[in-house]
């Protein structure tokens, strides 16, 4: 009698807990800044880029190295080489794009979208600026950034038994164009560990 009274609430509790953790059976939208995104040990997930970008911007802003060279005007940044040294193919804008947005919103920095290594962010703006300079009989427009941002993304994989570990390191350097010296350097590490997944490696 006593044991049967315990079984029913216990079963209800188990079923309730199981319901909280039931995976979705169909496609659904999730909060990109929430907990339901998939974590893949073998690759950099979008939430890793978001977290790394946020932490690196925090460090840059907290360092107080960004100086406003023109009164009332934000400092000018240009994005230099960002190297992907992992075995994964991705657009480094997943990191840098996030950072550009946060820095712009801070009011401390504006990024030159017509200056860059190789391909510029906005070729139309560059083209129109050149056209405008030609019409006004000015020289070739050549905005000079105050600072340049360069970096590298590294990866290291380790395995022990059936546990995989991948460490991703994001290195960034801010160079003062006037002095050509690195005024800020930071790295952010994201380490993920898990058992071999049923998908992929």
């Amino acid at each position: 009698m006593k044991s049967s009274l315990l079984i029913v609430p216990s079963l209800l509790g188990v079923l309730t807990l199981a319901g909280c953790g039931t995976p979705p059976t169909g496609a659904q939208y999730i909060d990109p800044n929430g907990q339901r995104a998939i974590v893949d040990v073998g690759k950099i997930d979008f939430q890793d880029f978001n977290s790394a970008a946020s932490d690196l911007v925090q460090s840059l802003l907290n360092s107080n190295v960004i100086q406003q060279r023109r009164p009332g005007q934000p400092a000018l940044f240009a994005i230099s080489r960002i190297t992907n040294d992992t075995d994964q193919q991705f657009d480094t804008d997943q990191l840098i794009g996030n950072m550009r947005t946060m820095l712009l919103h801070s009011g401390k920095v504006q990024t030159l979208s017509t200056v860059g290594l190789g391909q510029v962010q906005d070729p139309l703006a560059q083209q129109e600026a050149a056209k405008n300079a030609f019409v006004q009989n000015q020289g070739q427009p050549n905005p000079i950034p105050d600072y340049t941002l360069t970096g590298k993304i590294l990866m290291q994989k380790t395995q022990a038994g059936n546990v995989n570990q991948t460490a991703y390191t994001f290195y960034l350097t801010l160079t003062d164009v006037t002095t050509q010296a690195a005024v800020w350097e930071e790295h952010k590490q994201i380490v993920k560990q898990g058992k071999e997944s049923s998908i992929g490696f």
């Binding site: 907990q35 339901r36 919103h105 801070s106 058992k195 049923s198 992929g200």
Partner: peptide, 28 residues
């Protein structure tokens, strides 16, 4: 743990805390 607001207009904050659920391809 901490964070710097990326907007000068920020005056207050809300912190959300939860235990990680760790959704991996193997345990979906």
């Amino acid at each position: 743990i901490g964070e710097t607001a990326t907007s000068p207009n920020a005056v207050t904050w809300q912190l959300d805390l939860a235990e990680s659920v760790g959704r991996t391809p193997g345990n979906l």
